[in-house]
Amino acid sequence: MSLTGLFLISFLIVHLLGNLQLLDLSVEGQEKFNAYAKFMTTFPLIKIVSYLLYFSILFHAVDGIYLAMQNRKARPERYRSWKPNRNSIWASRNMGLLGTIILVFIVLHMSQFWYVMHWGEIGTDSQGNKNLAAVVIKTYQDGSAGMIMVLLYVLSMAAIAFHLWHGFASAFQTFGLNHKRYTPAIKKLGYAFSVIVPLLYAIIPVFILMAKN
């Protein structure tokens, strides 16, 4: 879990840097993004990493749901009085729920962009590259459907934020890294990461929606 979790965290950074290019909605900006998208789908090294990524998501999700089910079975009779907030935070106890929300989002997200980029109907820009930027902009500017997509996107980023609020530091503990000096720093870094990165992601579709008018 921790190995794939940390790999997915590193993916979040790279993917964010790519997506932030969409904050430039000029024609040149869109063409730059399309050229980047082409590079990401064709460059051999990136291809290898992307297969590793698909595998990591699947493994992380399947193992995570399996562990969550095993953990439920470990306490067949529930407590009638149970005050977990006195000893732990909500996110840490609901990683399975948060993960499932993220999984639903990943499926939706990939069907909207990844599938279309690979096999769907998609136009080309003046450079002859597949015009992914146009697909993205249409998705989030498309009337009330676009509004719902933006809302789903923002809510999913909130789920990622809560998942990582616990998950970031947790992955280090799983590896046995717990140190009087470094662990408090890792925790602080984790809290900062889990707020800032999903927030930056969420800004992108909101920005695109607002740029419509």
Binding site: L67, Q70, N71, A74, N87, S88, S170, L177, N178
Partner: peptide
């Protein structure tokens, strides 16, 4: 027993204040 997901409720409730550093070890 179930699997540890680093929730930390154990160390909070332990009457002898055994710390999570032991789990990492």
């Amino acid at each position: 027993f179930g699997n540890c997901s680093n929730v930390g409720a154990c160390a909070e409730e332990c009457p002898k204040e055994i710390s999570l550093e032991n789990i990492a070890r």
